[in-house]
Design a protein around this nucleic acid. Structure first.
Lengths: 223, 223
DNA sequence: TGAAGACTTGACCAAACGGTCAAGATGATA
DNA sequence: TATCATCTTGACCGTTTGGTCAAGTCTTCA
């Protein structure tokens, strides 16, 4: 069945690493770095603990890999900011992209939040380099929009933090949101409405009057 | 020196419990429930570990007390929402109150965030009862404002989540914010500007045109 | 002064955890 | 079939941690 030697070799490894990383992301998100144990991660992955340590020598190494995967996903979404030079569309796309990630990868967002909460012992260098540069360039873009009169003169950094905070809230605090929603996860419709609300408040908040009537859409029960 | 018997007795107890709770809040915020050890909390409080267990029988009991204190502070701020029946002033006061708490009690906010992140094993009942009721009544207030035409017809729940997310972001993610601020904590001026930005975006975001010019104030270096 | 209660503390213990190891299973190749 | 590398796994170990305990000290008050 196996075609090439390398395929066979790495097939087992790739599959097991995937299982472990998947289990680790959930465990680290729900219990934190200290709270998650290699034993429970191995259990969730369906492997003995010693086998986990065969693929990932230490718990910290495994954690690093999980965090790096999350950062990669985050960076991909970040590029949506640059797809358009009109603030209305750029902001809308960026917010929607970040909201979608909160919906599809809530565990990753939680691991990231946990890491920042605990003073980023593992990802400090990411914060200082990649994230710092990304933020600076995007702030320059927003400042240009303001100079061009395309939006109100708000503090760009404060705007970015607000977008991050709000979008990630739907992942990091989803347990609270679910509890306040009668203990049930948000339906697709509810989540779509939440996205609309965020986009609507941010756009209006920075003084952008949408070409189309966003507010009416947000309230209506339209598809 | 001691005047009454009860004063003397509880003076030692009160002082030591205060020291322990203070140390515990910092430790739980920075390392989470599992990551914080009773040993390090005792060290930080300047007591032997056995003494800590004399006042708080278990780590969980100590943690509960810390979380309850935080919830009390949160509830006090929540009342600012009711001080005024005009959305402009009510929202402004509420946002400012929550921002001030993020500034003065960042550790408490972090403990809360940690708890929600980990599915609220300790405070689930608070979420379901007190927080649920508070949210419902405030949503009713916002809906009335909307009916009265005092603000745009946005989803009240989405608005509340946005305010919570953004204000708490300045506490929970302050390490990231500091890192992006050349590694230094926000100055009083920077923080005041952040507050203004949040208020400004939210108010404009829900269609409230401030009587006074808020944006100009936000940029100026006023006292 | 002396008895009683509140407080202090070093030493200790059982459980849990991260990580190791050696012995074996599996499968490709020659 | 023999060889070799990859993978699997139960048993084990040293350390850390939450919590206990017994033997104290200190304070108050009759």
């Amino acid at each position: 069945m196996p075609v090439s030697k390398t395929t066979t070799k790495s097939a087992t490894r790739a599959e097991n690493e995937r299982l472990i990383l998947e289990a680790a992301e959930i465990a680290f998100a729900e219990y934190g770095f200290k709270g998650a144990t290699t034993g429970m991660i191995a259990d969730r992955a369906g492997l003995p603990k010693a086998n986990l340590h065969y693929y990932f020598p230490t718990k910290l190494a495994l954690y690093r890999q999980v965090v790096e995967n999350i950062f990669r996903i985050w960076l991909e979404a970040a590029s949506t900011f640059d797809d358009c030079d009109e603030p209305e569309e750029a902001l809308t796309r960026y917010i929607n992209a970040k909201m979608d990630i909160s919906r599809s990868h809530p565990m990753g967002s939680k691991v990231w939040a946990n890491e920042i909460l605990h003073k980023a012992p593992v990802i400090q260098d990411y914060l200082e380099t990649t994230l710092g540069e990304w933020t600076d360039t995007r702030i320059a873009v927003i400042e240009r929009w303001i100079e061009q009169g395309k939006m109100a003169p708000i503090d760009p950094r404060g705007l970015l933090y607000m977008i991050w905070a709000t979008t990630q809230h739907y992942a990091d605090f989803n347990h609270q949101i679910d509890t306040l929603n009668d203990g049930k996860p948000l339906s697709e419709q509810q989540f779509a409405k939440a996205k609309q609300t965020v986009v609507s408040i941010i756009l209006a908040g920075v003084g952008i009057r949408p070409a189309r009537l966003v507010m009416d859409d947000a309230i209506g029960e339209g598809a």
